[in-house]
């Protein structure tokens, strides 16, 4: 049986401070509750029972800090998460974008390949890929490099295919994957349409302006209340009037009414349109 690890608030602050000193990465912008749990989980997985030992390691080993930062990052979960949302996009959003000469799309704070790959498949199915400029940004070069390689975990692929079957019971997305000897890769042809840019969502400017669609599902969950507000304001300003903004189904825009002016297109799927 695993042991319960319980990092105190004081110890939590000590870890955040140590990471800042060792790497210049300031975790203060992240939701403390989740971050604390990520630290606890990391310590459990790595077999650390003492915060002091963890802090000592952070201060002495820069490679270890990178591993820590990578592990505490919350990934998205699977491709075609919430198939109903993708159906809504398919039926009510993409048809309205067809008249645009160029469709600018931003997937900010990319943390894995799921959302991006799903979006690429949906754009391709709607014959919109050739006129789309898809930006994928992350503060972490390694994350972008991994997404570019397109290697897919077998278990995740299985879940993703199951999700897709709920969107399109008789359809198939097998053609978007290249089955190699030891692993499967996502279509390099589709990935070649993406502009990958290393950029912090917190500190840097958007990669472009005039976005028609910003896909930001379940990423805001990881940020502190204050940072979440400033990020969503930044995303809002990067969009054209009439542009679409998408949050996860467990999120909402409460408390952001003063910095954004969105109208809900789908209350259940959290699709919004900029007024």
């Amino acid at each position: 049986m695993d042991e319960v690890l319980n990092i105190s608030e004081e110890d939590f602050r000590r870890i955040v401070s140590a990471v800042r000193t060792a790497s210049k990465v300031d975790l203060i912008h992240y939701e403390p509750l989740l971050l604390c749990h990520r630290f606890e989980r990391f310590m459990q997985m790595q077999g650390y029972s003492s915060v002091s030992v963890l802090i000592e390691k952070i201060m002495q080993d820069r490679v270890f800090v990178d591993i820590l930062l990578n592990r505490i990052r919350v990934q998205t979960t699977e491709m075609f998460r919430d198939p109903q949302m993708w159906r809504e996009l398919d039926q009510n959003v993409f048809p309205r974008l067809k008249g645009e000469s160029v469709i600018k799309i931003w997937v900010p704070d990319v943390c894995g390949d799921d959302e991006l790959n799903t979006l690429l498949i949906m754009l391709d199915r709607n014959d919109l890929l050739s006129k789309s400029m898809v930006y994928a940004t992350s503060a972490y070069a390694k994350v972008l490099a991994d997404v570019k390689i397109g290697q897919i975990d077998a278990k995740k692929l299985e879940i993703s295919l199951d999700n897709y079957s709920r969107l399109e019971p008789n359809g198939s997305i097998e053609g978007y994957f290249e089955r190699l000897d030891k692993y499967t890769c996502f279509s390099s042809k589709l990935l070649s349409n993406v502009i990958f840019i290393e950029r912090s969502l917190i500190f840097d400017n958007p990669p472009d302006k005039g976005f028609n669609l910003v896909l930001f599902r379940n990423r805001a969950l990881n940020y502190s209340q204050y940072t979440r507000k400033s990020i969503i304001e930044k995303l809002y300003k990067s969009m054209i009037i009439g542009g679409y903004f998408i949050l996860g189904i467990g999120e909402n825009l409460k408390g952001l009414e003063q910095v954004t002016n969105f109208v809900s297109m789908s209350k259940t799927e959290n699709i919004f349109r900029k007024l």
């Binding site: 989740l34 749990h37 990520r38 989980r41 990934q75 979960t77 969950l221």
Partner: peptide, 22 residues
């Protein structure tokens, strides 16, 4: 707790936090 989300209670006990962790 909503489907496909983890549910936390914030340390002040006044709010819920959701997460898509593994």
């Amino acid at each position: 707790a909503p489907a496909n989300y983890h549910m936390y209670i914030t340390t002040s006990g006044t709010c819920i936090s959701l997460s898509t962790e593994e």
